[in-house]
Design a protein around this nucleic acid. Structure first.
Lengths: 189, 189
DNA sequence: TATATGTGAGACAAGTATGTCTCATAAAAT
DNA sequence: ATTTTATGAGACATACTTGTCTCACATATA
């Protein structure tokens, strides 16, 4: 199954798409269900993925690809600290559905997530930006970086969720997130 | 099984304790596992709880009891808006370990959670406090109440989680939460 | 002490998920 | 046109989970 054949490519992507759509909604979905959603025979699923875990890992890898891809523009922008964090939010917001998969496997799959070296990489970049923002006077030095990062991640998930429920547009949640994160919910004094 | 017998009371609470400890870590734990953790025979588990769902519901009910109990002191304090929100955080934070169960079942169990009338009640009280805070000039009027509430809830879970991992004390996460929520992560200007 | 009741161990049935395998068929590759 | 390869359908074995039931035993209760 070396993806030289059109059919194999199609089957594979159909399976990944199905998992990406179904697993966040129903994390314990059986492989029979996923194969059915993909419109692919269950046996074929096993031809592409040796096990359930292999499928999940592959979907995670694809999600990371999209995420890293979305953040690509930043490579040439040389932003740091607060500006980098805001720009990242802006670029990540439209990827809501992909992030959703990642957030579903945040708890259960922390060991799965951390298998991907890019996970640690992205975490490190976030930490770096937070520490730069502290130096620049944009984030309080007395707040643990870990707390700031958790808050940042959590706000991203919250923002996506609200957008997915149709309660606010991408632009709106981006603005809300930025304001809430840096200024809090209080009016400017 | 009317809990007239010491043994029944002990078994029941051991099972609830086990579920409370294990399910947040491993949401798909089998009843065999939970019974083993409780040190109770699996048959006895079924004598107390008709089904898996019944066990989960009971644990949720117990969690709500604790939560409502913890917030009891506010009944006589007549706080409103920002002060009510801060006081609620202060009272809820020490319940971290116990109430992590609720956050685990936040997504999956939203239908389970909303079975409990106290869920809607607490939600309404939060909404009321947020709207009071808006009137009082403590929360921006241009922020949707829904967004503010989601942020508030998520910060509570984040704080619980950080405390549960031993990364910060109760007092610390309480302070971090309050500051982050109302002022944001930026230093005071 | 005598009775009532909760319990543990284990058998049991039914349902479901995982993973392997075969074979005929259809569609790609050459 | 011929060969190669992926697929679908389904059988099959294995294992696990849920939920029920029985029986001997231990422990509350009276």
């Amino acid at each position: 199954m070396l993806l030289r054949d059109k059919r194999a490519v199609k089957s594979r992507s159909a399976l990944i798409e199905a998992g990406l759509a179904e697993l966040p909604v129903n994390p314990t979905a059986s492989l029979t269900e996923i194969a059915e959603i993909a419109g692919i025979g269950r046996a074929t699923l096993y031809r592409h993925f040796a096990s359930r875990e292999a499928l999940v890992e592959e979907i995670l890898a694809v999600s990371f690809d999209d995420l890293v891809n979305a953040l690509m523009p930043m490579e040439n922008e040389n932003l740091r600290g607060k500006k980098a964090m805001l720009r990242a939010v802006e670029l990540m917001m439209p990827l809501a559905n992909k992030l959703r998969f990642l957030s579903t496997f945040w708890v259960e799959g922390e060991r799965v997530l951390s298998k991907d070296p890019r996970y640690a990489m992205m975490e490190n970049e976030t930490i770096l930006a937070i520490e730069q923002a502290k130096e620049d006077g944009d984030i309080r030095k007395d707040m643990p970086t870990r707390w700031v990062m958790n808050t940042y991640d959590m706000l991203i998930f919250t923002a996506w969720d609200m957008n997915a429920r149709g309660e606010a547009s991408i632009e709106e949640v981006t603005r809300l997130l930025a304001t809430t994160f840096f200024e809090g919910v209080s009016p400017k004094s």
